[in-house]
Design a protein around this nucleic acid. Sequence first.
DNA 1: TGTTATGTACATGCGGTTGC
DNA 2: GCAACCGCATGTACATAACA
Length: 313
Amino acid sequence: MSQTIIEHLRKEAINHLFSLDTVQNCWSIWKAQIQQQLPDLNAINVLDLGDHLSNVFRSTGGNGRGQGEVSGGGTAWEALICWYMNLCLLESRTVVVKFKKRLIPTPIREALIVSYGASPTSTESDLVAITFPEKEIYAGNKLDIVARDHAGQIIPTTVGRNRFNYEKIIDSLADIDFSDYEVGVIQCKTNWNDSAQIPMLWDMVYASEGFSRNQISVGTSAYKIRNLRKFSYSFVTVPTNKGSFTQNTLAVKRVQNISGGNYWGQASQPGVVYSVKEIFGRNFSSSTSIGTRATLNAALPKLSQEYSYFDLI
DNA sequence: TGTTATGTACATGCGGTTGC
DNA sequence: GCAACCGCATGTACATAACA
C-alpha cells in the first residue's frame, strides 16, 4: 500500500507511544473512556474529545501507575495529547511527535537547540508539531521520493530488510525546504502552578532568539527558527492541582501570552484557557486546505484498516 | 495585633531516554 | 545491556493578605 512520508512519520510516532510502559498500562482504561465519548465516529465528536481528555487522564489515577503517586506521570499526559492531536490531524500535513531524536528531522532539531555559553541545552522532551510543506513530494508515495545527500548522491529509499530510509530522506528534504516548514512546540504539564513559568521562559527565549550579551543563542548557524515559515510555543495542562483558575491567577497570566496559546483537556473558559481542540484552528490552520473537520471526516472511515495503529476500534 | 486563608517556591525520589 | 543524566510530580514550608 502506498503511504506518504508524512503518514509514515505519524505511524512511527504513534507506535512509539504504545511502546511505552506507561501508555500500555493506561491504554485499556483510556480506550474505554474515549469510546464512551464517541457514540458516533465523526469529526465533530473526535475533535470534541479535547473537552474530555482531562477526565480520561484522571481515570487511571488509582491503579498503581497513578498520576498522583508516581513521578513521571507527565509522560502519560504527553502521550495522550500526542495521540489525540495526531488522530485529529490525520491526513493533514501536520504530525505531532513526542520528542524522539530519530523521528525529528535534524534541521528542525538543530533549530530548536538553545545554547547557553558553550553548552547546548536541548529543549525539553516535549511534543513537537511539524507541518510539512505543501509540495508534491510530501503528498506522493514515500518510496517514490528522490532525495540527494550533500555529495549529490541519490539516497536509497530503503535500507536493510526493506525498511524505509526515513532519517536520511527527511533530513535531506527538511534541509532543502526548511523555510517552508512550520514547527510548533507543545509543552505538556499535568499541573498548573509555578511550573507554568517554564513554558513562559522558554517562549521568551525563543521569541528573543537569544541574548548576545549573555551568550544565549537559539538554533545553529545553518538553521534558525526565524527562517521557518512559522514557529509557535504552546502549553497544554490537565491540570491535576486544585485551585481556581481566573484571569488574575499568576499561573494563568504566565502562559496567557505565549505564542501558541494555553490549553487544557476540558471545555474552554473564556479569557482564561482554551480547550485543546482549539489548538488546531489557532496554530495549525495551514495543515490542510479544506479544513481540519473535512480532512478528518474523510480519514475516519479508514481507522479500522489503514490507521488501525491508533488502536481505537 | 493575632489568627486564618490564600498563594508561591523548594526539595526529594523516581521513570524514561540516551550514550557507551 | 548497563549506567548516568534529565525532567517530572507531589507535599510541605514559607510569605503575604485579609479579617476579626
